[in-house]
Each structure stands twice: as C-alpha cells, then as structure tokens.
Design a protein around this nucleic acid. Structure first.
Length: 672
DNA sequence: CGAAGCGTAAACAGGT
DNA sequence: GACCTGTTTACGCTTC
C-alpha cells in the first residue's frame, strides 16, 4: 500500500523527459538529472583520479623505491598466496583440501577466460563443457605454476628488500615509512583480493566443487589472509587520516553509511550498491570483500562465518581483535566499527583496493588472452582487453561501495552483480534485458542480487515480461492480480519504488500484449497467470549449441552475467554444482529457484518442479487449485493458447507437476 | 535495410 | 468524475 502510493507520487518527479531517458540515466550511471545520489553518477563525475590513490600517497617515493615496494608486495602476496593454499590444504575445516587448492588455482584462468578472451563461438565450438572445464583447470595449473615460480623468485629478492627496508624504515621519518607501507599494503591487499576474487569467481561458476559448508572455509580464510596482521592497522589508520574527504565521497556515492540503518555491521551491506548476495556476488569478477560480508551478515544462516570474522578474530581491516564467538564479534563490530569517519575512510580505502585489483585482473586477463591466442585459438578479437583497464583506471575515483563491476567493464558504475553491461545501455530505450535474450537465469540472477535490487535504485536487467512472469511464478498459486504484480515489483525492486510509475503502464501493456500471460477471472476478480508454453515460445532459440547466442551472452554480458551463462550452460551439461542452491543465498535462492530452471531454458514450467528441492510453495493442493482456476477462462484461453490440453499439456497448467519436474530437471531439457 | 523484440507513451473502454 | 484495469496503437531504439 504505502509503497504503491510512494511510487505513484514519484511518478511525476523524475521523468521530465521520457522514461527512456531517465531509465538509461539510472542504469548508466546517471545522466546527471533525475535521481541524484546514484553512486555511478557521483563516481564518474567525481574525481578523475584513478587507482593511483595509493601512488598518490607515495608521492614522496622515488620511482625506484616504488618499484622495490611493489616487488616486495608481490612477494608478500606470493607468500600469502602460498600460505593460503597451504592453510587451506591443512585446514581442519577443509576435508577437501584438494578442492581448496584447486579453488585457488582455477580462478586465475577462469576469471581471465571469462573476460572475453575467447569468442563465444570458440568456446562453444571448440570446447565442450567438460573440455572447457579441463581447459580451465589446465590454465589454472599453468598460471599457478607460473605464479609460484615468479613468487619464489621474488621471495628471495623480497627478503632482502624487506630487511633493508625495515632498517631504512626505522631510520626514516615515520611519515615516509607510513606512506610506503600504505602503498605496499594496498597493493598487497589488492593482490590478495584478486586471488580471493578469482577463487570466488571460480566457486560461483561451480568449477570449484566446494560444498556450502566447505565454501565457508576458503571464503573465510581468504579475507583473513588478505589482512596483513601487522601492516594493515597502519594502512587503515594511515589512509583514514590522510585527510582526504573520504566521507564526502562516500556519501556522494550513495553509500548508506550515513543512514541510520547502516550500522557498522551493515557496512558490509551498502544497501545501494553492493550486491548483497554471497557466493555468487561477484559475477562481475568483483572483489568479494564487501559483498561477501554482506552475505553473511544478512543471512545469519552461517552464524559461524561472518565475513569479517574468522579464526576467532575480527577481520575488519586493521583490526585483529580477538573474539571468542560470533556474538562477541558482533558486539565488537557494532561498537568498534560503527559508522564513523574512521570506518568510512577505511571503507573507502577498501574500495580503492578493490579498484586496483580490478586493474590487475584486467592486466592478467590480457596476458591470458595473449597466451590463449598463442596456444589455442587465433587471436579472436583484436580488441584488446586493455581498454577496460584504461578506463578502469578510475572506476570509482571517490567512491565507496560501488557495485561490483567486472574487471572487464569497470566503467559501468552502478551495476548489480551478475548483470552484464547489457544492463547499462546508456542510450535508447531498448535496453537489452539479459534474461530473455541470453537465457541467463533470471531466477538465479535475482536470487543472487535480490538484496541488491531491493535496495539499489537500479533497473533490473530483465524484461517486463520476465519480471511479471517471475512475480507470478513465485507465488504458490501462480497467479496474481494486477495489483499484486505491482506490489511485487515495488517490493522486489527499489527501482520500481522510486521511479516513475510508467512501468505500471508497461506492466499492463505487457500483460495484454503477450500471449503468455493469461487473464483468469477469479472470485476476487481477475488474476494473471503464465502460460509457460507461450512464454517459451517467444523465447529465443536456445543457447545450447547456438554459437550466436552464446556469443551474445558473452559479449553482451559482463563478467557476472557471463558467469550466470556459464552456470546455465554447465548446468545443462550436468554440472550440478553450478546451479546448486547451496551456492546461492539460502533465502533468496529458495524463492527464486523455480525461475532459474525455466530461465535456463527449460521449456516447461519451472516451478512446481522440484517440490522437494525447491521451495515447498507449491503444494499439491495449491497446484490443483491453480489448475482449476486456469481452466475457468476457457473461452478466452482457447483463443490465446493453442492447445494446452492438446498434445502436450501446458506445462504450467496441466498435467502432474511431478512429470513436468522430471522433464524440466533433465539437463538437456530444453528446447529442441 | 528490414524484421523482431522491447520499452514507453497514450488513447480508449469498461468497471468500481 | 476519479481511479483502476485492460486493450490497443504508435513510435523509437537495439539487435540480428
């Protein structure tokens, strides 16, 4: 109710021009007008400064010194990296040490590969899913090996340098040392986070078979490793102090740090931008730090693993406070890391770290591309990956909490994880919606970014049709009144709460326009249902085996979306892990699961499907009820729906759910 | 270049 | 008469 009215009031406000303009503006990062405060807008316009923040602070350092430090950092990273592996191998929590290890390896190549190194066609044609996986692992191994060698070499060097530096540092003025350390640590963090990112990416893609429980191991371990016990405190303190108006930028960015709701705990869950969801939050290859935090904080499901809590101590950058248990940790978090200037500044630093990591990732990706080109395929797209890098030079100059952007497209400011750049059409009204076009599972997409969309004023990258369908399918009865659909929109997407209500018109328009939406006269009025068959009809061919589609997916979507696509593709290839609910946010995953199926291309009705695995929402009774309802509108339906009852019953309406489910569940399911 | 899909705007009708 | 719901048409944009 309230929401509704709210949206209505807003309706007139923003869209001075046409809906298109405002929309694209939103998605694109703000064309200046309209809803102010979107992170992107601020981020872009803001400082043209780039990742150099670290470097900036190093202004005093000579280039040689800088180099040295970088080397040292690399070494450090290498150490941590190896340590990380070792720990994960030995970690009692990880029964599957092998997997953990691979987790570390794979990400490298995975992340890189996903970055448009390969043309979709190449991927598709050259590699079958299994092959792909194998290739990935090969790459990983290769990369890992190289990394390790490199690190080993540097280690010796580093040792020397560290020693000299330490000595020098004692003699040097504190300030200089501080700066050096700052830069050093920043890079260190970046490297480490890059690795985390890779790992997470891998996990999300399901290439690393970490089970939910296990997943927490690496995830937890990484953040820890990322924190250099001795140095970080200084780093953070140093950064916070430097007087940069971090706060300003932070607030401008739309980071809700200042909002009452945003307590220290919620820091991790910047309502506006950072994608909330956990395991897959980094579809874009974004460093996971922020996102992962959010996860666990919001989903106490894994009480034992708060992203900022691990190994009995607080993992807040620069803080190593020991906490006996999670409860204590939470208290500590709320008291010590509440919303204040310091935390804000630290947050900002973290953002910079992430930013630099992205650059690093891009570079590595570029390298991989070259490698791939040399080894396997012909240099697919001459389009060097470097561009993103350059651009990304200043992804979020001032910013805090930017939505995870893929290294591939760091430029795009406000993008929910998992959304490809496709989402951000800067121009015309006809933005590409990923779901339909690319078969990227809207459900999983939503599941992953549920919180994000809920809080961020970002337009979801789905077509109205998919959204409507989603709304309808999410309900037990598979039917909604128009008003309920409205409510779903406003409930699920901040965008539809705050933006013009033109979407309501669009919703109605879509309901009427698409045959897949069937109006049913009900006791309480009219409800809308989905005719899956029709819906599937209007969907694009299929992505399995369709090079072009795959191409679209990959080129059109960013890293995140790519992941989704990969997941879908792999899922089809019987890689259960990929789409495994375990990887998803428990809460949202369950509710959205149904969709993922259908969106994955399953022609049939998604929902009722796994009564067991998927949410219990669809109890037999309900289902039958729905069927009845649907039957009612006989007359109208005959027309619209060719013949549900004919050869094959309409998935969603007729026939025993169980059957459908089975069918749908089959990997090769879809389409023909 | 044209077709298709999508988003948006708007006119219109029927019902409450 | 205002508002909601639903249908339909038109236009612009993007992608293929």
């Amino acid at each position: 109710m309230m929401v509704e009215s709210a949206s209505e009031t807003i309706r007139s406000a923003p869209s001075g021009q046409n809906g298109v303009g405002s929309l694209s503006g939103q998605a694109d990062g703000g064309s200046g007008s309209g809803t102010a405060g979107t992170a992107p807008a601020a981020g872009r316009d803001g400082s043209g400064r780039d990742t150099a923040s670290g470097a900036d602070s190093n202004g005093e350092m000579s280039s040689t010194e800088l180099l040295q430090f970088q080397q040292q950092q690399a070494l450090q990273v290498a150490r941590q990296f190896l340590l990380q592996q070792a720990s994960s191998l030995n970690s009692p929590g990880n029964n599957d040490s092998k997997q953990s290890a691979s987790a570390v390896q794979v990400p490298v190549s995975v992340a890189m590969m996903s970055q448009q190194m390969l043309t979709p066609q190449q991927m598709q044609q050259i590699l079958s899913p299994p092959q792909l996986q194998a290739l990935l692992q090969q790459q990983q191994a290769l990369m890992l090996q190289q990394l390790q060698e490199y690190y080993k070499k540097q280690q010796e060097q580093l040792h020397l340098q560290i020693l000299t530096q330490q000595q020098a540092g004692k003699q040097q003025p504190k300030e200089a040392l501080g700066n050096k350390q700052l830069a050093f640590q920043q890079q260190l963090l970046q490297m480490q986070q890059l690795q985390q990112q890779h790992l997470l990416n891998l996990q999300r893609q399901g290439l690393v078979s970490l089970q939910p429980s296990q997943a927490s191991g690496p995830l937890q371990a990484l953040p820890q490793a990322a924190v250099c016990p001795t140095d970080l405190p200084q780093l953070w303190k140093g950064e916070g102090a430097p007087g940069q108006p971090a706060e300003d930028s932070v607030r401008q960015e739309g980071l809700d740090l200042a909002s009452p709701a945003a307590t220290a705990t919620s820091f991790a869950s910047p309502p506006k931008v950072s994608p909330p969801l956990s395991h897959h939050p980094l579809p874009n290859g974004q460093p996971t730090v922020l996102t992962s935090r959010r996860d666990s904080s919001s989903h106490e499901e894994t009480p034992s693993s708060h992203p900022l809590y691990g190994h009995g101590e607080c993992k807040w950058p620069g803080c190593e406070t020991l906490c006996e248990d999670l409860g204590q940790f939470i208290k500590h978090l709320n008291t010590e890391h509440a919303l204040d200037d310091r935390s804000t500044a630290q947050c900002r630093v973290q953002m910079q770290v992430v930013q630099q990591l992205e650059i690093q990732l891009a570079k590595e990706s570029e390298r991989l591309q070259a490698m791939m080109a040399h080894l396997h395929m012909r240099p697919s797209e001459p389009k060097p990956f470097s561009q993103p890098v350059t651009v990304s030079a200043d992804p979020f100059p001032d910013g805090l909490v930017h939505p995870p952007t893929s290294a591939a497209a760091p430029v795009t400011p406000l993008r929910p994880p998992g959304l490809g750049s496709a989402t951000l059409h800067s121009g015309g009204p006809a933005r590409r919606r990923s779901s339909d076009k690319f078969c990227s599972p809207i459900s999983s997409e939503l599941a992953q970014n549920h919180e994000f969309y809920k809080n961020a004023d970002v337009r979801p990258p789905f077509t109205y049709a998919s959204l409507i369908r989603q709304a309808i399918l999410e309900t037990p009865d598979r039917q909604l009144t128009l008003n309920e659909i409205y409510n779903w929109f406003t409930r699920m997407f901040a965008y539809f709460r705050r933006n013009t209500a033109t979407w309501k018109n669009a919703v109605r328009h879509n309901l009427s326009l698409h045959k897949c939406f069937v109006r049913v006269e009900n006791v309480k009025g009219a409800v809308w249902t989905v005719d899956e068959r029709e819906y599937q009809k209007r969907r694009p061919p299929k992505m399995t085996g369709s090079p072009t589609l795959v191409k679209n997916m990959i080129s059109g979507l960013s890293y995140g979306a790519l992941n989704a696509s990969y997941q879908a593709a792999l899922a089809e290839s019987s890689f259960p892990l990929l789409s495994s609910p375990g990887m998803l946010n428990p809460g949202s995953a369950s509710s959205l699961l149904p969709l993922s199926q259908d969106d994955m291309g399953a022609p049939g009705e998604p929902l009722p499907s796994n009564g067991s695995s998927s949410p219990p929402r669809l109890s037999p009774p309900q289902y039958s009820h729905q069927v009845q309802v649907k039957e009612e509108p006989a007359e109208a339906e005959e027309d619209r729906r060719p013949g549900p009852a004919l050869g094959a019953p309409t998935p969603s309406t007729v026939g025993p759910p169980e059957d459908r489910e089975l069918e749908e569940d089959l990997p090769g399911e879809d389409m023909s």
